[in-house]
Simulated scan of single mutants.
Amino acid sequence: MNLAEGVQIVSFGILAAMMLGAAIGVVLLENIVYSAFLLGGVFISIAGIYLLLNADFVAAAQVLIYVGAVNVLILFAIMLVNKRQDFQPLRRGWIRKAATAVVCAGIFALLSTMIVSTPWAISTATPAGDASVVVIGLHFFSDFLLPFELASVLLLMALIGAVVLARREFLPDDEADRAQVEALRLPERPRELVPSGRDETVN
């Protein structure tokens, strides 16, 4: 093992640890804003792994699209939907937790089976090199055009729903809240009527 391979292995270990730690934080943290920021950390770690695989274009697209667009859109949706509601424990909430654990365990088992059964042989195909952008563009606008458009429509619907929910007016329930809302309003300045024909300036 030479120095370059050692650096790649160490870099991969650091990026993998960062990605797993951030992903666990996304799931376990109760503050959804912190979870969204950690999701950006997961995307950045994946972009670093793409760089180790010499996929510079995919790494740049990962940062620009997922971190700069999708993650920011998620943060906007979280901050727009600021619903004032007290926490209420759900009846039989353990059923949802158990179902979630079963689904996660099943997905983990499927991924583990795929990793073990896949022959990870070194590809003998000629690398695209500088023409990788052209190859990705051809596949992107031919084979994967429909999934991309569906994802963009889905994100647009999520943003519109967040704006609609955020535009709901706050209706005070009791007299104290009504008085507080009235206290926050500024009194209007009385308007002075200026007779026509007189050159006066109203300050």
Rank of each mutant, 00 (worst) to 15 (best):
N54P: 04
V102K: 02
I122H: 09
R96H: 14
V135P: 00
I32N: 09
P127L: 04
V67H: 03
P127F: 01
I49R: 10
V116R: 04
G68W: 07
L28F: 12
A69E: 08
V70S: 01
I115K: 03
L90F: 11
G68S: 06
L28M: 13
S123M: 07
I46Y: 06
F37Y: 14
A55V: 06
A22W: 04
N31I: 07
R91P: 11
V42W: 04
L90D: 03
V103L: 11
Y66K: 03
I14R: 13
P119C: 03
P89M: 08
I44N: 07
A69D: 05
N82F: 01
R84E: 12
V67D: 00
F57V: 14
A121R: 12
G129I: 02
Q62S: 14
A22Y: 12
L51T: 07
F87T: 14
A121V: 12
I46M: 14
I32W: 09
L64V: 13
T118Q: 01
N71A: 12
L29H: 07
V58I: 15
V133D: 10
F57D: 09
L53P: 00
M114Q: 10
F76E: 03
I74S: 01
L80D: 04
T118C: 01
V134F: 11
R96Q: 13
A121T: 05
Y66G: 03
I14T: 14
V33D: 08
G129A: 02
G129N: 02
V135N: 08
S123A: 11
Q85Y: 08
A17Y: 05
Q88E: 15
N31A: 05
K83E: 12
V70I: 15
D86H: 14
W94H: 15
L29W: 00
S117Y: 02
R96A: 15
C104V: 15
T126W: 01
I32Y: 13
T118W: 02
V58P: 03
V133N: 09
I44E: 13
V116S: 02
V26R: 01
A16H: 06
Y50I: 08
E30W: 06
G41N: 13
F76A: 10
A98L: 15
W120H: 09
V135C: 01
A47S: 08
D86K: 15
Q88H: 14
L64A: 06
Y50D: 07
L111H: 01
I46V: 13
V134S: 13
N54D: 15
L111P: 03
V81L: 08
A59K: 11
A99E: 01
V102T: 13
L20C: 09
S35Y: 10
V72G: 02
E30Q: 14
K83I: 14
I78F: 06
A16Y: 09
P119L: 03
V58L: 15
V67F: 10
G93P: 03
A17S: 10
G48L: 03
L52G: 11
F57I: 15
S132R: 12
F57S: 12
S45M: 07
G106W: 01
G68V: 06
L90Q: 10
M79C: 09
W120L: 09
G40T: 08
L15V: 10
F43L: 04
R84T: 12
I44P: 04
L38I: 11
L38G: 00
V134E: 13
G106H: 04
I107A: 13
